[in-house]
Computed example of a mutant assay.
Amino acid sequence: MLNRLLRPAALLAAAGAITLLASACGGSSPASSTSSAPAYPALASSPACTQLRSQNPNLAGKTLTNAINPHTPGYESISVSDPTKYEGFDVDLSEALGECLGFTVSYLPVAFDALLPTLQSGQANFIISDIYATKDRAASADFITYSKVFDGVLVAAGNPKKITGIDDSLCGTTTALNKGFVEVPLVDAQNTKCGSEGKPPAQTALFDNNADCVQAILSGRADAYINDVNTVNRFVKDQSGKLANASTLHLPYSIGIGVPKGQLPIRNAFTAALTQIQTSGLQTQLAQKWQLDKSAIQAPSLVTAS
């Protein structure tokens, strides 16, 4: 299954215990493309995936929607070579899950802070969009982890404000962040600390996507941007001589796949398929393909509210 064409929100139909996407709405967006040959034939034909398809007949042959915020190059973004398609590690991982379990993937682009509400409303069946699996977010979805979290601190070249991380170096600066990012409360906590020390505030400027955050630094409206280190390093590479990564931070989170709360069939099926993707070495190959740190790969584990 090749990366699907961009398409609008789809109407959902229930099938067994899992809410499945049945058909797409009309409109001016092009229809989804399909491929007669699987993208990952070795994975699809593996004994583990063959067994999983037989155990999950309510998934095989269906179309499931992945809610994404397609502004994170390397993870999910509009394809450079074909603007009607998405590309990136998370897109490939979505397709691999579909190959293993027998479903087709469609994509629903939304703002980052709308990812969880979109899943909760039933407009999407799952989320794979570089979203950190936290206990707070687990109140809205169950998460299956697949990667450790390392953040980078994007600054202007030369780091004129001498920012070193989420610490006192942020006092008197403005950090550009996506709405809904886990870094927002971390910077807010640092702002409180700055105030208690009699220092200038550590302010935040909130945006809907990563590209706007980066533009805020380039235009001088913000001093830093904190996000996944692979994303930060990619922006540094794309804006050679204009941006730099001031520091790499390890945050106590994991990147996860979000699925509807309490829907054990889809949660268990995704966990088993992800395990096979990792065991086969495919996740490592995808990480190398998209220039991500393969050492950050994490065995599947559940993050729930309980």
Rank of each mutant, 00 (worst) to 15 (best):
N159C: 03
I128G: 08
A48I: 03
T65E: 02
A246M: 08
G61P: 09
L115V: 14
A189L: 06
C194S: 10
G88P: 11
K289N: 10
P41E: 13
S79H: 00
S46C: 05
S196Y: 01
V303E: 09
Q263V: 15
V91W: 03
I128C: 11
N58E: 02
N191H: 11
K62A: 10
L119P: 03
A202H: 11
P73Y: 00
G195T: 13
Y75P: 01
V214S: 00
S45M: 11
E99M: 08
N69K: 01
L218K: 04
A31M: 09
C49H: 05
G172S: 12
P30C: 06
T63M: 08
Q283L: 02
S247V: 12
W290E: 08
T192E: 13
S29G: 04
A299H: 06
L2V: 15
I266P: 07
N268H: 05
A211E: 09
T231S: 15
Q298V: 02
G220E: 06
E99K: 11
V110I: 03
P8Q: 13
Q55G: 04
E197P: 10
Q51W: 12
G262D: 08
I131E: 12
A42K: 04
Q288K: 15
L154N: 00
L218W: 00
S169K: 01
Y86I: 12
S147K: 14
A111S: 11
A176F: 01
G158A: 07
T284W: 13
G195C: 11
I144H: 04
D212E: 08
S35M: 09
R7K: 14
Q203C: 03
A139G: 09
R137C: 13
K237P: 11
A222T: 08
A42T: 03
A156F: 07
L264E: 12
V155P: 07
I127T: 14
Q51D: 14
Q51E: 15
Q283I: 01
V259K: 09
L302P: 02
N268P: 02
V214Q: 00
V149Y: 09
I257M: 13
D167H: 06
E197H: 14
G16W: 05
V303Q: 10
G198C: 14
G158I: 04
C100D: 02
G281Q: 06
N245S: 07
F126Q: 01
Y225L: 00
P73N: 00
T118D: 00
L59M: 07
P117E: 00
G180R: 10
A111F: 05
N3R: 07
N227A: 11
L264N: 08
S169Q: 02
S295H: 10
Y225W: 05
G16N: 02
P38G: 11
S36F: 08
G102N: 04
A96V: 04
N69F: 00
T164N: 01
V184A: 08
L101R: 01
T65F: 04
S306A: 06
C171N: 10
L249N: 10
Y146W: 13
Q283A: 01
I127C: 15
I68Y: 12
